[in-house]
């Protein structure tokens, strides 16, 4: 989770990632931030994020992102 928070803060600082649960719906992250985020997460956690996973529900909070990472890791 620490590593994910570091990535998020590098991409878009000034957001309280521990408490914000509307990163997409509240327009804190735009589509370019998502491109960066996906690329960074794939490198850092050795996962492949398919397009179908790119939905607000998975990206609206750091917690939801972390849950997606865990799930994709398990699925291999």
């Amino acid at each position: 989770m620490e590593e994910l928070l570091t990535i998020l803060n590098e991409i878009q600082p000034d957001v309280d990632y521990l408490n914000c649960d509307e990163l997409i719906d509240g327009h804190y992250l735009d589509s370019l931030d998502i491109l960066s985020l996906v690329s960074e997460m794939e490198d850092a956690f050795d996962i492949t994020i398919p397009t179908v996973e790119i939905i607000p529900d998975n990206f609206n909070s750091a917690q939801r992102l972390w849950e997606m990472i865990q799930r994709l890791r398990e699925e291999g």
């Binding site: 491109l35 690329s39 794939e42 790119i54």
Partner: peptide
């Protein structure tokens, strides 16, 4: 937008 930008070649390009 997402299927294209998340395609393998464009992901590599972003990285």
């Amino acid at each position: 937008f997402y299927p294209l930008s998340m395609s393998k070649p464009l992901k590599k390009l972003t990285s």
